[in-house]
Design a protein around this nucleic acid. Structure first.
Lengths: 333, 333
DNA sequence: CCATATCATGAAACCGGTTTCAGTGCTGAG
DNA sequence: CTCAGCACTGAAACCGGTTTCATGATATGG
């Protein structure tokens, strides 16, 4: 019932455990004959080296800690998927922990990862400050995905949210819309702010003044989309298009519009942000901004490998892409 | 730059490392004075015990391996969330790995978990055979969630999919529908089969013959929902309701119906399965079968704790719940 | 043919904790 | 007053690997 150890293999194969270790890791050449008997023994006894012991001895755990906030979110999952793919055959494997968007849990989870002596940390989103992060990670290679620290030395892989916001708004402007409402995301959220900035820039460049009564706060949830449309309607202001800070918000907005007898896209055009899986099958299929989430995850892995073997870090800012579907149409008059 | 070890603490506090260990774990009483100086030292030096070393020495890693298939799926995420919640303050923490629905990756990931010497394994879904699982896990407490092995000794926490299928169909029958189409899930999938069985039973009990031309194969994807509706329409058979094997399939079906000028629920009633987050905000909000996913995860944690401390396992089959929204209405005539 | 570099290999140290074991100093019972 | 019993504590063994070091054997070169 006991686990078979390297010592057992050594005994059975008639060699020392050093030799077994050398065979298994291929660090230096060993006599082919002994090598064979070692391999035989491992197979016969079903030997599975203890990664725990190995980590302790070698000082490297060959694991990258990945701290997510809500694995269930399609966007964040795509990133994780990218990280997994990017790690590929590097020999490193990911170790996931989840903060569930609660700072305390996030900090605990990060501490746990560090306690596990991961060789690097990838933070996907999150709300810890860079100081908190640095304190816990102390010298460990660390980088963030989908989150930027403008003033801090923590590396990050992110997309240009400002550009995304610009693309979404620009698309509506080109269709002739002028009264474009925006449902913003969580206010403290860097991404949300950038998307709004893009909206403002596009409007400005098109010479359309931003009407503050067309800007409503939201929190990235579907409920907030419903509330936002209610708010817009109760304000009594006219609008022919809505740019929602993410797809989920757009879903909620769409439902609220429907409840109020407004058709999409006939009465109101709607643009989201994220391009989550369901968006393409929405009724009508949602026009949105696609984030190269998977790609970001992959880049993160690559960057992490570079950090670990000291090749330094090449900053990169990926770009979003407009996906036009059927929730937008040119303004009627 | 080096990590501070228990030895450093011992030196600074002027005690032996045994004592430090005892203070930190509270295993036996130590002199309050020494205790204080140890705690002081740990705080001052920022000592973070190496979980690696601790695991190796104590033989318990205090981790439960959780093997998922697709973290991004809302249903599976809810389960993971439940597991996290259920582990709560037990002292154990979860360690996630992901198989991405590829048997090989699944096996590798499981091996990696076992190599990390987790104290137990929770398999969420998956496609490895029970033999494969047993071989890798050898004696480790193991249980599956959302997957049942009818003939095997592996414990499982699952919902009664047959009942869910029955509930969905029964709801439509009560509304007066008789021509109820079903879009099935992946054929080899236990869950999919059970849901279909529930459909058959409900129809049978209501004295309505199952028309084979109303049953279409699918694969749980939105695309398959679109294809299925196309298939139904091209077969030229009439139907007033559709029961889709999961919500995503229902989304696709809804879009295809819309494209063909069929309104939901006016022309066709639609029922899904899962109650994923977006379903409540769909247009129209989707009637569906809710799986107590979070609850299942929680149960899994509890059951795992029992397995670990030898309290044995109490089998449990959770039940699903019908959530009536606006995609269903009584048949018109 | 001898000195030296190279190779293969086992012994032992080490990674950073936990746990057993063997005291030491006190207290309380006899 | 003596001895068993208990509460603390440090030394040392241990967990299961990796890696350094020393050694004997073999190959290389002058």
């Amino acid at each position: 019932m006991k686990n078979v150890t390297i010592q057992d293999i050594a005994r059975v194969a008639g060699v020392s455990k050093s030799t077994v270790s050398r065979v298994l890791n291929g660090t230096v050449a060993v006599n082919p004959e002994k090598k064979k008997s070692v391999l035989d023994a491992t197979k016969r006894l079903g030997f599975k080296p203890s990664l725990i012991a190995r980590s302790l001895a070698s000082g490297r755990s060959m694991t990258i800690g990945v701290l997510t906030q809500m694995i269930g979110s399609p966007f964040y999952d795509a990133i994780s998927q990218g990280v997994i793919a990017g790690l590929g055959d590097t020999g490193y494997s990911p170790l996931f922990a989840d903060g569930r968007w609660q700072v305390q849990k996030e900090a605990d989870a990060l501490t746990a990862l560090v306690g596990r002596r991961v060789d690097g940390v990838v933070l996907v989103g999150g709300s810890m400050t860079s100081e908190q992060i640095s304190e816990v990670c102390m010298g460990l290679p660390t980088l963030t995905v989908a989150r930027r620290f403008y003033d801090q030395p923590i590396h990050s892989i992110a997309i240009d949210n400002e550009l995304g916001g610009y693309q979404a708004t620009d698309c509506l402007l080109r269709l002739g819309h002028q009264r474009i409402a925006m449902i913003r995301g969580i206010e403290q959220h860097e991404d949300a702010r950038d998307r709004f900035a893009g909206y403002q820039r596009a409007m400005g460049e098109a010479g359309v003044a931003v009407d503050p009564s067309l800007v409503v706060d939201g929190d990235f949830s579907a409920e907030s989309g419903i509330r936002a449309v209610g708010e817009l309607l109760s304000r009594g202001c006219e609008f022919s298009a809505i740019f929602a800070a993410n797809d989920l918000t757009a879903f909620g907005a769409r439902l609220a519009l429907d409840r109020n007898g407004l058709r999409v896209p006939d009465d109101v055009s709607l643009v989201g942000f994220d391009d989550q899986m369901e968006s393409a099958f929405f009724v009508p299929p949602l026009t949105t901004i696609r984030q190269p989430a998977r790609e970001m995850g992959k880049q993160a892995s690559v960057a992490m490998m570079n950090l670990i073997n000291g090749s330094g870090f090449e900053s990169c800012l990926l770009t979003s892409e407009l996906v036009v579907r059927e929730s937008t149409r040119s303004v009627k008059d």
